[in-house]
Design a protein around this nucleic acid. Structure first.
Lengths: 252, 252
DNA sequence: CGAACGTTTGAGATGACTCAAGCGTTGTGG
DNA sequence: CCACAACGCTTGAGTCATCTCAAACGTTCG
């Protein structure tokens, strides 16, 4: 199986995971998937849509700590940890597949290699956290947004949802503010500036990156941490790109 | 073995790890342990001192993405990932134990439970990353420093290096700036304010927290993500507290 | 004793925030 | 099919937190 992500599943591992799915759920936009601090006995794979992981402050201000696209094993963290320190919410309407922890336990015994791949998947999540720390700690508003859009472009490219310059992205400016540690008003002004400087246009859920190299430079974005092969996209057929590390077809 | 951390090693696991140590190194202050982007064939356990994980920007400005205290398995991430997206540096003088990846590979086969504990250890690192994201994205300067000092107090308490109010902390104000996404000048002003408001005094490498509850509230610090038992310290004998999840005596 | 390093303070600049209002789009019910 | 409510986007004006640049001061160590 050809794949552009860090961990690649072979056919038997993949079908073992598919067999373990206990439930497939449709989620409404802005619905809560996991409330923080609740004990979980299953983890979820995102099939379609966008999910966020967030931490709210005392006054309800929200910081997104991760964003997930189709194919991501969203809260694999909850398998060893049981209780999450953060919440999970659907940003757009979404479809998720639930895998009971008992099944995860069984399959990591049957397929020792799978345990390692699960571990690697959570380590890439951690590497993304670190890139986000850099973004918040050391970049100005424009750099933060440029960095985020560059990262998103690469991640969506790996699952065939970006052609390297344009992609659909169902986020509001307030979502981007909660990702970037800014206010929605300031995000709006920065988006205009990105447009005026010919770097990037984001309008009605469509992102068009005019010059990916220039945008990446503005955001000091270096894709190594994503462990995605960023060689020319043309090297893979479209149907191959759509197969993410942990992506699943909607079963049934 | 009594322990206050998420993962607890039993005697056989512990001695297996100790046997796997290939080298013990003394590090000078400000010396580089791992340069970013270099392939690694061993991981390191911190025995004493303080280590930082960092990402530098194009102009050399640095963002710390993690800080490690004795007992931490610092770059276990490098075992599955091989190449790190960040650098590691000794802040103070430090002692580290090196464990070859080949040994890690062997011992996770011999002790399947150990693989799970290693995984959990890296997941707690990720949870700390998320708390830091919240800190940078949603707190003001004073909140960030209050949050960091509260977190540090709990982490050091778990290894017997804080009594819950006072501890030694070998960081400069510039280090704290690189942790908090601030300038050293502003850190200085905020530290003065913390002093004047009777929250906390940090002087010549000693932190004295006047009112831990008040400081935690100022930084919206909630210790759950650390997976450390924060019940009264008196419940454990001092010598028991000194035994961290992955802590080791200096062998030899 | 001098060099190197870290801390402290001041003055002025600026990036991002707050509050407020207007505008555009979408979906829904009368 | 229109009207209105809800939501998100856009813009303006004024404020404030943090930054930058600069200098002085303290401490440690060779």
């Amino acid at each position: 199986m050809i794949n552009k992500r860090g961990a690649t599943l072979d056919a038997s591992e993949r079908s073992r995971i598919e067999d373990a799915i206990s439930e497939v759920r449709d989620l409404a936009p802005r619905s809560t998937v996991v409330r923080p601090g609740v004990e979980l006995n299953h983890s979820t794979i995102l099939v379609s849509g966008i999910l966020s992981r967030y931490i709210d402050d005392r006054k309800g201000l929200r910081q997104l700590v991760a964003i997930h696209f189709p194919g991501d094993f969203v809260d694999l963290h909850a398998f060893p940890l049981k209780v999450l320190d953060h919440g999970i919410e659907a940003i757009s309407s979404a479809v998720v597949a639930c895998v009971p922890h008992s099944e995860l336990c069984a399959m990591t015994s049957e397929f020792p290699g799978l345990a390692r791949k699960f571990w690697t998947s959570t380590l890439i999540d951690a590497a993304i956290h670190r890139a986000w720390l850099f973004r918040l700690g050391r970049l100005d508003a424009m750099g933060r947004i440029a960095h985020f859009l560059s990262e998103t472009n690469v991640r969506l490219g790996a699952i065939g949802l970006s052609n390297g310059k344009e992609f659909r992205l169902d986020l509001t400016q307030t979502d981007i503010a909660e990702i970037s540690g800014l206010t929605n008003v300031h995000v709006n002004r920065v988006m205009r500036q990105l447009r005026e400087e010919g770097l990037c246009v984001f309008r009605s859920s469509k992102v068009e990156i005019i010059d990916p190299g220039k945008l990446a430079r503005r955001g000091q974005f270096n894709p190594g941490y994503l462990k995605i092969d960023t060689s020319p996209l043309s090297a893979l057929e479209p149907h191959e790109m759509a197969i993410n590390a942990l992506a699943l077809e909607h079963p049934k």
